[in-house]
């Protein structure tokens, strides 16, 4: 694959990168706080990962190794094209292996393999404002964050329990970061929420359309909102294992099998699944 030399390193110009990096630094200083930034035009449309892409392009250097995943998969369209764009404008090597990557850009999953201190994970965020569903005005929501006025967010959980017996939020479950700000962890499944808590790696969140950057630094407490007597529950895959690698400890996708008319489950994190199969084969 050829690299484009006509563009600046990592596509966006240095001044723009500087501005994005400044927002990133501010976001790291205020864990969970949404920092506005001037979202740039990119050769992909807003809503297709431009926030995550700009964060990645602003922080990537020639020594980095890049991994891009989309719903846990390295090979789906969004991941392939973003990886292609970043590789062609920077020339940095790319990988599917979670352990080898220094920057992992992701759409809605955190890899199963625990990340290290020298790794950065960049999330593509569609709706950065967790209060969006209870307060449509951005101005008011900002004031609510400033005053830690989160009662209404809690009421939405309360109403969910009243109506359905449990909280029905599937993805982007609201979390409290460092006992200060409520944050939308991008639409990762509830399965991944625990991985954010006291993690070794740096998490950066970029919302291109909404022009916000936020972060969870390493070793930061991240707690899902839960009532004392209604504990947070992640997805339950008990009784199912991955049809490819046999894993029972990873987030599984339910797949409809047209041939047999039945269903089977496979690991959502394809790199994790492949590494298990390889290990099995080596033994």
């Amino acid at each position: 694959m050829s690299t484009h030399n006509d563009y600046n390193f990592a596509f966006i110009d240095e001044n723009a990168k500087k501005e994005i990096r400044r927002s990133i630094l501010k976001a790291i200083c205020l864990p969970g706080h949404q920092v506005p930034f001037a979202s740039r035009e990119l050769p992909i449309a807003r809503g297709w990962g431009t926030g995550g892409l700009q964060v990645t392009l602003a922080i990537i250097g020639p020594d980095d190794v890049l991994k891009v995943i989309d719903q846990g998969c390295d090979g789906s369209v969004n991941a392939v094209n973003l990886r292609d764009l970043i590789h062609r404008t920077t020339g940095v090597p790319t990988t599917f292996e979670t352990a080898q990557a220094s920057i992992i850009q992701t759409r809605h999953r955190i890899p199963e393999l625990p990340l290290r201190e020298d790794q950065i994970i960049v999330f593509q965020v569609p709706i950065p404002e967790p209060l969006h569903y209870v307060e449509p005005s951005i101005e008011k929501a900002t004031a609510m964050h400033a005053e830690k006025d989160y009662a209404r967010m809690w009421v939405s959980l309360y109403e969910d329990i009243v109506n359905y017996g449990s909280v029905t939020i599937g993805a982007s479950y609201p979390v409290m970061v460092h006992e200060n700000y409520i944050m939308a962890p991008s639409p990762i499944p509830k399965w991944d929420i625990a991985k954010l808590n006291m993690a070794n790696c740096l998490h950066l969140f970029g919302a291109g359309r909404e022009k916000r950057i936020y972060a969870v630094p390493p070793y930061t407490r991240v707690e899902p909102l839960q009532f004392e007597d209604k504990p947070f529950k992640k997805e339950d895959f008990s009784g199912h294992v991955c049809a490819r690698c046999g894993a029972g400890d990873s987030f599984l996708d339910e797949i409809f099998d047209e041939a047999s008319g039945g269903k089977y489950w496979v690991c959502s994190d394809t790199a994790y699944c492949d590494s298990r199969i390889q290990k099995e084969a080596a033994v």
Partner: peptide
């Protein structure tokens, strides 16, 4: 009141501001 919340939810909103996080 918030019309889109239940009566109980509206009262819960006020109780939650006083840090009562026990559903029961």
């Amino acid at each position: 009141l918030k019309g889109y919340f239940t009566s109980g939810g509206n009262i819960a909103e006020k109780l939650l501001t006083a840090d009562i996080y026990n559903y029961h």
